[in-house]
Design a protein around this nucleic acid. Structure first.
Lengths: 351, 351
DNA sequence: TTGTAGGCGTTATCAA
DNA sequence: TTGATAACGCCTACAA
């Protein structure tokens, strides 16, 4: 059955009543409602979404704008994020609109999305320290939620973020407690705020243990396999190489492991490794998979939270709000006391 | 400016004329058109998409349905595919709708998408040998294009696929020409048609060289790192291990490399490796990246072709059509004559 | 070349 | 509890 009118003629009821029955309005009698619902199923009727959107003024759609330059990398974490967010959209009757645009057309795209009324709100990905998208979205009045935080006024907008500073501080503390004094950091690009925060957490832990952060033991790069490999190799060629390393993500961790292996350093005994783990579905680096000790906070859950909070906001069930997720340390076999400490018997073995 | 009526009042023109001017109809005078376009820009007017969709009956949206079970893996190739498809959608004024649904609700989702008129067509991902989605979509009359092929009547529907059989035949031939006789295959799950075709191509090449395919040298599994590792390890523990291996994808290739390294087999001299390469933006396994010899066909281009062909079809510019992409052999440093042949001097070095 | 009027399929207001 | 009727904002015959 194509539309309301036809169904109403079939049933001898007005379109109004049918609409009300189907949309759960209270004023329609239970008998009528049942009859309508039954008929809708029988005749395979479903409201036309454009018509409904036009009438209600709601798009029931959330947008994700993905800027991509020609041969740009596209963030592999995105897949799992949208798996989480998308599941929530489906449950709550929203559509997910993904807009892949040239890197320099992002602002323009937000403007168009808003003018068109194609979306009720957007999720902002990969926030920079000072991100021009936030004032833009505020100006055009498009509800948004940021996955991550900027350094702008934190409580003026909605976000979902991981406590990256704490995660990396805890990781470093864990290694320090095991006896490590030379700890490397394989980080992402620091124009991404989360990477900055991660370094800060790492440095905090070092300093509170009386260790001075050494720039030679830090790298900031794309979070991909070769970047991890190169960073680790550079570390290991130092006169005073690290006995442990903290890595920012699963992909570079593969490179880190590869480099360690080239130097015959077994994870956990020759070299301790802790990796931040987004719990990517296609790359299980933690115990159960590759067995690394990880700081874990699932990016799928982050996606779910983002979707829920933005929808609540759009539906007026919440005001701008924030959520700080904590990463959890999961013991694998890639951490242990440093080789020197083992020999000197300075530390008791963990576990 | 919110809508057409307001703009028409501002300009002292009818809504009709403005609509025509903006939509490029020929009958409006050039002077008027310029004036309208200028005013639209100035007042920041853009047509409401729901209204337009309702009036035209076109959604200008392409759907992608992604079935995901609770703790399922979500295909990492998807990211690059949608980067390619999404770029085309943007250029041609289409929206991309992604529907993440429970694994068992896929059919229901297609039905809803169609009844609602939310999309003009869909891309079908990950076709099975006999895929029930195709008859379903044909029945409900929703235009679709398959990324890959089923074993159903190939010219009855539109698809874009890689010539997987040929790619793997060529890869195997290349290794055979180098002198290899024991060649392993690290494949994906064979309920995916492309994996079947890959094995067939591999077996063809072996047979034409008088080699009998050995089940002990084949594995079929999820295309992730640990699967590659386990398969390779199993191969290497055989009494008569392979001297070369063909791998289905970048992620398992990492595992294959890792296992080879554990056995002190250098890629290219101790162990030849050819990998099928989707040219994932975040994992460059070919020359320039990890340096493997690869059979390459970019999945982003595949996404582009899918999008273009489906849109052409929807807009009546084309009938159902098919496109078979060829993978290209790209020489890296992971292939060479087998160690035994080197010693015996049976083969001249390649290149 | 421009304008009038009706329709697209819903939802929402007001009256019965 | 139900029903007319008027939006919602655009497109498109048909008329001028």
């Amino acid at each position: 059955m194509a539309n309301l009118r036809q169904l109403s003629e079939k049933l001898g009821l007005s379109q109004t009543t049918i609409s009300r029955a189907l949309n759960g309005y209270p004023e329609v009698s239970e008998a009528t409602r049942q009859r309508v619902i039954e008929a809708a199923r029988q005749y395979d009727y479903e409201p036309n979404s454009s018509a409904r959107r036009l009438a209600t003024g709601k798009a029931r759609t959330i947008g994700h704008v993905i800027p991509v330059a020609k041969h740009d990398m596209i963030n592999p974490h995105f897949t799992d994020f949208i798996a989480g967010a998308g599941a929530v959209y489906s449950q709550r009757g929203y559509d997910m609109l993904i807009s892949v645009v040239d890197g320099d057309k992002e602002a323009e795209t937000y403007r168009a999305l808003s003018r068109n009324r194609r979306v009720d709100g957007v999720i902002v990905h990969g926030p920079m320290a000072h991100d021009e998208r936030l004032p833009l979205l505020a100006e055009i009045g498009l509800p948004f939620l940021v996955h991550g935080r900027t350094l702008q006024a934190e409580d003026s907008y909605s976000w979902v973020d991981v406590n990256n500073r704490r995660a990396f501080r805890e990781a470093a503390r864990h290694l320090i407690a095991l006896g490590h004094r030379r700890i490397g950091l394989v980080n992402g690009w620091e124009h991404m705020v989360f990477a900055q925060r991660r370094r800060e957490g790492y440095e905090e832990a070092l300093r509170e243990a009386g260790l001075e952060p050494d720039p030679a033991l830090m790298s900031s790069n794309e979070m991909i396999e070769p970047a991890g490999y190169e960073a680790m190799k550079r570390f290991l060629l130092l006169p005073d190489p690290p006995t442990a390393v903290i890595c920012s993500s699963a992909l570079p961790a593969l490179g880190v492991m590869g480099a360690a292996r080239e130097f015959d350093l077994m994870p956990g005994t020759g070299m301790s490794i802790i990796c931040y783990d987004d719990n990517l579905s296609f790359l299980d680096i933690g115990p159960g998979g590759m067995g690394l000790t990880v700081m874990r906070s699932g990016i799928r859950e982050a996606g779910r939270h983002c979707a829920m909070m933005l929808i609540d906001r759009i539906e007026g069930k919440a005001t701008p709000s924030q959520m700080l997720l904590e990463a959890e340390l999961v013991q694998g076999s890639s951490t242990g006391p440093p080789p020197a400490a083992l020999v000197a018997g300075k530390t008791s073995a963990h576990r």
